[in-house]
Write a protein that binds this DNA or RNA. Structure first.
Lengths: 209, 209
DNA sequence: GTCATTTTGGATCGAGCGGTCCTCAAATAT
DNA sequence: ATATTTGAGGACCGCTCGATCCAAAATGAC
């Protein structure tokens, strides 16, 4: 797992906590701003999120926004990196949370983490952006696809002892697809209980009965 | 299954093949126009599809477009009805295609039909619209959710003899989620072979080994 | 023919979009 | 102090958006 951080590309070589050089100091927290931007894109989607929405939520002037992200699309790509990386590290941590418990428990924790992250709220950013931009933005689609592939390999590693090396990859992709589809169903309005029940089936795919 | 047709709401009471009354005759085929509109929404999404795109594809002037659909959103809702209804009847037909074969074959045909419809092309309109509009348009989300629920009941009916009445509903929803997620993965750029392999797992969920 | 009715094409609308730019403020460097 | 560098504020840009309107065209009813 683990993706390139790709921090705010903003003040081009300033990883948020860098030493302060000459010139007027920045008045906003880049991480906070990026988080706010991500929140807007998650809530509204890409096209429907206006510069007005984004700058207001991030507390940035238009000039600061463009200095930080370069464009609306640049902001989306940065927010996407943040989201994907956070999601992957969450899975890593869930898997490593209780080393004494068995592999089945690890899988259950990982599946719980996947579903808890987004399905209970309002869908999954991966699904939303894949749907809206997958056919139009090669770079965004690539980031998403790479992240999905990493997660699939990760899940396959967890499931291999239970379902066998040969079947693990397919099962992992199926579990991932099951989660993504669950997020889509949830966003369309399916009851939380129905969606939550799918965790059991996801675990079954990964060899946990 | 079976949804209300909800034909073109256009020339308000003219189901495409109605008798011609007074006034200048329509120069376009409403069904064809709606199909073209659906094609644009499938290719571009809702926000990114402009009136220019829609009218050009449908061969309609702006006035005809607004007379037919009332608004861009009206066109989307009509196109959504068309898509959902077509998808459901396709599943019905697939299930009933070969009555002599067993229930397992029926399930395989239905799953094949689900995946063949969209996954091989460019994602699933249900996923796309759920992602883009699920949080914003109650009516669109409702249509999608209802259609998903009908499909889930339909699949549950097919799977019940194989996995038991109690588990059927959950398994059906899982298979459906698996398909929706597969469409999302495909749209992000996953290889067709990988996505296609998920059909096996969907069948397994429905009791077909 | 005349009238009522409906469709068509295209001009047009205000609003909002993403993006740029200029000016001023606030810090460091000398 | 002064010069320099950088961020912030906001007016402004051209453009495209979805939507409306109007006059011309094409039919049925009489």
């Amino acid at each position: 797992m683990s993706a390139t951080p790709s921090h705010i590309p903003a003040p081009v070589f300033c990883p948020a906590s860098a030493r302060q050089g000459p010139g007027r100091p920045r008045e906003y927290d880049p991480d906070r701003a990026l988080g706010a931007v991500l929140g807007v894109f998650k809530a509204r989607g890409y096209e429907a999120a206006s510069l007005e929405d984004l700058t207001a939520a991030a507390g940035l002037s238009r000039s600061s926004f463009y200095a930080a992200f370069g464009s609306k699309r640049g902001a989306l790509l940065a927010a996407l990196d943040l989201y994907l990386e956070a999601g992957e590290t969450a899975l890593d941590r869930a898997a490593a949370a209780d080393p004494e418990a068995g592999p089945r428990d690890a899988i259950r924790r990982v599946v719980d983490t996947m579903f808890a992250a987004d399905v209970h709220r309002a869908g999954c950013f991966v699904v939303d952006m894949s749907a809206e931009l997958g056919a139009r933005d090669i770079e965004a689609a690539g980031k998403i696809n790479d992240s999905i592939a990493r997660k699939a390999r990760f899940l396959a590693g967890l499931a291999a002892p239970l379902v066998g090396e040969a079947a693990a990859e397919g099962r992992a992709r199926a579990a991932l697809a099951l989660y993504l589809g669950a997020a889509a169903m949830r966003k369309a309005g399916a009851p939380v209980t129905d969606v939550d029940a799918l965790k059991t089936e996801a675990c079954r795919l990964l060899g946990v009965d």
